[in-house]
Design a protein around this nucleic acid. Sequence first.
DNA 1: GTCAAGGAAATTGTATACGAAGTTGTGTCG
DNA 2: CGACACAACTTCGTATACAATTTCCTTGAC
Lengths: 245, 245
Amino acid sequence: MERNAKLAGETVGPVETDAETPRRRSAGGRVKSGQIREMLEQEIVTGERLAGERLDEQAVALRFGVSRTPVREAINQLASAGLVELIPNRGAFVRETGLAELVEMFEVMAEMEGMAGRLAARRIAAPARARLQAAHLACENAAAREAPDDYYYENERFHQAIYDACGNGFLAAEARRLHQRLKAFRRLQLRVPHRMHQSLVEHRRIVAAIEVGDGATAEAELKSHIMVQGERFADLVASLTPKVS
Amino acid sequence: MERNAKLAGETVGPVETDAETPRRRSAGGRVKSGQIREMLEQEIVTGERLAGERLDEQAVALRFGVSRTPVREAINQLASAGLVELIPNRGAFVRETGLAELVEMFEVMAEMEGMAGRLAARRIAAPARARLQAAHLACENAAAREAPDDYYYENERFHQAIYDACGNGFLAAEARRLHQRLKAFRRLQLRVPHRMHQSLVEHRRIVAAIEVGDGATAEAELKSHIMVQGERFADLVASLTPKVS
DNA sequence: GTCAAGGAAATTGTATACGAAGTTGTGTCG
DNA sequence: CGACACAACTTCGTATACAATTTCCTTGAC
């Protein structure tokens, strides 16, 4: 675990610890509220918790071996993230993130990524450009090694680099938020065949457009890049769950 | 709970929090956590709470006559809304929404509104079209009456109508979130002269573009409409606060 | 037999208490 | 005189207890 986050510097963005948590509940260390949130989030997005199900606070608290207080905090965070609906004096109910809403979220994500790319093409500075090139090179290497897991990780860094390069800290933060929320769903997408190489081709076009300062092309390429992901994911979900509400 | 319309009459300044009589549990209504969040939010955006100031939980709890628990919930919500920064085992510090960040937020807002307009021009259905026309007519009437307060309120409804018409519920929710966050700042803008009539002219162009299904024009007009607001606001703030951090 | 009213059970929301982690001040040693 | 260490205070994070509100079941009346 991270010893401390010394918050060096004035970067205002929340430091998201997106560690792939090995789920160790009641194994020595005490679970923290963040871990509870993450586990509940996983259970919801994987469909382990059915839509409309009520999240009983003390039941969850009992399961994790903690009191109701951290469970409440975790549920509140899930509510503000939009994964559960909070009805006063009634309880927390898991919201079904149906296929339609997922497509909507990808549509918005595409717009924001496109905006970030457009701005980055105009505003990118030398350090950010170096980071973007480095991240892209890492993607190339991962693809050459036929390592989808590595590519997944480096792809994250690639998009983060674009967010950083756009020169709009608020946009970068919002894009990270949405990215984080879609991440759980996108994880299912790893198994789509040939997606990695196709993604890499799109990355090359994006980098090229940013390099020459062509904002319009960067925007269009990034929009398409994200929307394709959304469509692929929609196909995957539709094939997995034949019954759709 | 959104019933109370506190947006109409008041100017920005007076938020009677320090003069708040400590109405303890015997007198009238108990303050709820949502109210605490709202009051703290007001204090922060009005600048009553200086940037970097620490929000002491038990001090706030004492002021509102409640315990630390609802205060914690309120602060957590503010943190997820981005108004305060939460440092583990250190406390909650109010984040300064400096002029630069406000411009960034308006830039994102413009993009989202433009997207909503573009989608609305293609997807708008009859009921939403009727609501949009009604909201626009109300704006026209308010402007004809030279009633800026009424125009402010009807303008809210106008933009809400566009969000509703875009056919993307997630985008509508996100746009509302941003709109809500910028609302407090936008209120300062009422006193800018001639802004109301200029805004109305832009509204007419937006409605016309949506009516004929011209998504590109609707997007461009809405982007410009919001960015102008952001620039006007930046001018206003810059003129009010000559010293910039 | 059905509907309504009232009470009991359950659950959320809030209050208070306690442990943990951090910061600061002071004392001592180099 | 300066630096390091220890202790005490402060404050967050969590646990437990209580109050308020809702829901469901039972009972009584029509």
